[in-house]
Design a protein around this nucleic acid. Structure first.
Lengths: 253, 253
DNA sequence: TCGAATTTGTGCGTATGTATC
DNA sequence: GGATACATACGCACAAATTCG
């Protein structure tokens, strides 16, 4: 079991970072220095640093150097509707609880459902939907991307056609739907993770190859989907927190 | 914005995979062929394939070739206790629902709490705990790793000291704790993602650099943590699914 | 303001070890 | 055994960005 040189080198550097020998924001030795210190070729040094970059430990800035990234404890985003407050944003209230300020930008457009979105909304592919894109900011820094889709068959010709406009603009989905007598009763969320897409990396200000957590959320009114959304955050900056009561099955007997 | 050659090449190959031009289990052209086809050096071909490997699209087998990985729809693991059945395993019942068979192996040891675990269990660092490691198998293939910790102060000198032994062996945490009159009332789960660790990669049979989703779970009896665990799965093979009722706040007014 | 040195990211050609066929 | 393929490793080169005198 011969561990390759570049991985042993990455192990060593990672250790130095974790133990505080290379503190956050400090500069990692340049690749010329590294290859001399470790007595390896410059390519091996490049590979070692690349591993650490993929893991989110360091970030290279061309022309300047490679720097240890800040690794603050991930900020917590609570899931579940219990903490949605009328007229407020779950994101903003989560951040407020951590002494930060959440704001957002959004834009809506009417388009047609792709097959994947149609399946999630249980409508015909090509049916009209309102797509809204959000960029959530945490103390002004991009933090979370969301794209939501609502069938025009539900919200069309009502006051809530566009999530961020009208008297219910900015309200939660449950509240908005209630305004047109749609009772949202359940929420389902599927949590996955994948490498960041190039477009997202730009918006979230994370390096290429960084890991994002994706939540695929659907609001249901009875059995009928009323809204579905994709929520994307950088995995090393945010974590999703769920809380629920323990099983009733144990209480029954 | 000049996209580097190896990334454009990776884009092209990724497209071919997604569109089915390179179907699952098929062999990607060797790097000699690739470098000839794309008129680049073999190193560039290596870099391009490496990108796809990191994304989970392909997997190299030394001496044989590089193959497109199966990308079955991720199997769903439902979270929340509502589906825990007395005497059964949530994992097994999830897989049974998808026509598969879930089994597991486990081993327990008594050890002392690290500072991180102590904080999660709200006990003193160094206090004795029972650590249990699980490997869950999906139709015989490794699928999910779990490590759980229980304070010996709670379970010591009882029938349930070891989760998998005794009359309550293999039962859920809620049921086991109920057996010693500990009423588990709440569960919290924090969901994160990161690159797989080498030890995990070996156990889960995923390539180095693959992404795993990690759930940090804690069972609470009132305010007192009774058990905490880390659950690890390959991000492209499993997804966690949460479901909960929509906000009561909308129903109130 | 300018230029020289440094640094990262990328690219090329080659070589070796080992696994597979 | 021989051919092929991947993973790793070495050394070099260049462009673009940054730094600094």
């Amino acid at each position: 079991m011969n561990r390759p040189t570049y991985l042993r080198m990455a192990d060593d550097l990672r250790q130095k970072i974790i133990e505080g020998d290379l503190p956050p924001r400090s500069r990692v030795p340049s690749r010329a220095q590294l290859s001399k210190q470790y007595e390896v070729s410059d390519r091996v040094a490049v590979e070692a640093v690349r591993v650490l970059a993929a893991e989110g430990f360091v970030e290279g800035r061309p022309g300047s150097g490679t720097y240890v990234r800040e690794r603050a404890a991930p900020r917590r985003l609570r899931r579940g509707d219990f903490h949605e407050r009328a007229g407020g944003s779950a994101f903003a209230s989560d951040l407020a609880a951590q002494g930060r300020t959440g704001t957002w930008r959004s834009s809506s457009e009417t388009t047609t459902a792709t097959p994947a979105i149609a399946a999630r909304l249980d409508i015909e592919p090509g049916a009209p939907v309102v797509r809204t894109d959000y960029v959530y900011l945490d103390d002004g820094e991009p933090a979370m991307l969301t794209a939501s889709w609502e069938p025009l068959a539900i919200t069309g010709d009502t006051l809530i056609t566009h999530p961020e406009d009208g008297p219910f603009g900015g309200c939660g989905v449950v509240e908005r739907m209630a305004a047109i007598d749609i009772a949202v009763t359940r929420v389902t969320e599927q949590v996955t993770a994948r490498p960041v897409l190039d477009g997202e990396a730009h918006l979230l200000d994370v390096p290429r190859g960084a890991i994002v957590v994706v939540v695929r959320r659907t609001y249901l009114a009875g059995e009928r989907p009323a809204e579905t959304a994709d929520v994307v955050v950088a995995a090393d900056r945010y974590e999703f927190s769920y809380e629920f009561p323990a099983a009733a099955s144990a209480a029954a007997p």
